[in-house]
């Protein structure tokens, strides 16, 4: 066991180069705008029924792609691994209220395709023409660990050229009022990391992932937040082509994952 008693010594980690990164935060007003224009031209109805977490997840991938100058063709065979948190709360709340009044015939048909756990990944795959494996992971607290481990597993054998690792959630969790309106002060977050097999010479930040042997009680929303601050730092670094402003070489995310930032000398070499 390692010093934390969590992972047996010798268990290999998977190392993934971070080609692209972006974080998107959207208030309820901004969500309305993003739904119309997530960053690329889409048919008017493309996101009409999509969950808010799908909208910000898509916007994050679009932003990351753009900043890294990745083309549609370059990402066509990538996988999408998306971990929404507590997906469907808003839509289901409204649907329950309506079902109680109007019954089965008025039930929206969009619950299943757009509020199931695969929906965020499905929307990204469909609208950005990404044709590799496509799956949702996690569901509640701890979803970030599940997503990172799944993305690393898919990438490990280089069976796909890249993976979009997407994590989404609300801060704080939204609740609809009696008029089915969303509070103004909630924010929906998404991060997108474009991962490829690590190559020593590319001097990119690297995500290291290994299996988590931590007990399930360690999985909390608070623990997942470390991913968003780290992704924000990596995104700034990639867009500015700078090393970490904190002057540190490693961003520890959890017992199962950390991000290694390129050193100053690596940047110069790059």
């Amino acid at each position: 066991m390692d010093a934390n008693g969590l992972a047996p010594v010798g268990v290999p980690s998977v190392v993934c180069a971070i080609q692209a990164a972006a974080v998107v935060h959207a208030t309820s007003e901004q969500l309305t705008l993003l739904r119309r224009d997530p960053g690329v031209p889409l048919p008017a109805s493309a996101l009409r029924n999509a969950d808010e977490q799908s909208v910000v997840g898509l916007a994050a991938v679009i932003s990351a792609k753009r900043q890294a100058n990745l083309t549609k063709e370059q990402c066509a065979e990538w996988a999408v691994v998306a971990a929404p948190r507590y997906l469907g709360r808003i839509t289901l709340t409204a649907a329950v209220r309506r079902f109680r009044v109007d019954g089965a015939w008025c039930m929206t048909p969009h619950i299943v395709p757009h509020q199931s756990q695969h929906a965020v990944a499905g929307v990204i795959s469909q609208l950005l023409s990404v044709r590799g494996p496509c799956l949702g992971v996690g569901a509640g607290p701890g979803g970030c660990a599940e997503a990172a481990q799944s993305a690393a597993t898919i990438l490990d054998r280089e069976s796909v050229p890249g993976v979009w690792l997407v994590m989404t959630g609300w801060d704080r969790e939204p609740v609809l009022d009696e008029q089915n309106k969303l509070q103004a002060d909630v924010v929906c977050h998404a991060l997108a990391l474009g991962l490829t097999p690590a190559i020593a010479s590319n001097h990119l930040p690297c995500l290291h992932v290994r299996p988590s042997y931590a007990p399930a009680k360690c999985s909390t929303v608070a623990a997942d937040r470390a991913w968003f601050s780290a992704a924000e730092e990596v995104a700034q670094m990639l867009s500015a082509k700078e090393t970490s402003s904190r002057g540190t070489a490693v961003l520890q995310l959890a017992d199962y994952a950390w991000i290694e930032l390129p050193a100053e000398s690596d940047k110069n070499a790059a």
Binding site: L135, A139, P141, E146, A216, S219
Partner: peptide, 19 residues
């Protein structure tokens, strides 16, 4: 999945997948 791991007293990585 977390509750299941705890009840089964397993020690290993877990993931719930939705496709």
């Amino acid at each position: 999945i977390g509750a299941l791991q705890r009840r089964l007293e397993l020690r290993g990585p877990t993931v719930s997948i939705a496709a």
